[in-house]
């Protein structure tokens, strides 16, 4: 399993958030999540311009066997979606923390970032889950 990048923040439900310039927050699922889900075969992206709420379902990823909701770590307006995933959902399996990002949000409430786990807290959560 690849190392968890230190600049990411996490939901307990395994989504990551990367804070970029201009209040942009990029969102994906963790490497742990992709390995548990297995080969992804479909990603339902949110619509650009739609608004998402922290903790609410914003996208769906589907493996061979099941569909799973992706909860947005932060609230705001969706300003980018990763169109690559329409043809290559497996990009998430290959590079969950990088090329496999799912959507980006213009954050409406920066305070929400404080509610997220940092990389080491998330790592601990995953380790506890494995036991």
């Amino acid at each position: 399993m690849s190392e968890i990048p230190g600049d990411l923040k996490f939901n307990k439900s395994h989504e990551w958030a990367r804070v970029e310039d201009g209040g942009l927050v990029r969102v994906g699922i963790s490497d742990h999540a992709q390995s548990q889900l297995g080969d992804l075969v479909y990603v339902e992206l949110p619509e650009i311009g739609s608004s998402v709420q922290a903790g609410n379902a914003a996208a769906v990823v589907e493996s061979v066997k099941a569909a799973s909701d992706i909860y947005s770590p932060v609230s705001g307006e969706v300003v980018e979606v990763n169109e690559t995933l329409n043809d290559k959902p497996e990009t998430i399996n290959e590079d969950a923390f990088g090329e496999g990002w799912i959507f980006a949000v213009r954050i409406s409430n920066r305070a929400e970032l404080d509610d997220l786990l940092d990389a080491s807290a998330y790592e601990e959560l995953v380790e506890n889950e494995d036991h």
Partner: peptide, 12 residues
């Protein structure tokens, strides 16, 4: 199959 991912997404 669902229960596995349900555990994952609802681990909290």
């Amino acid at each position: 199959g669902q229960s596995i991912t349900r555990n994952l997404t609802h681990a909290d």
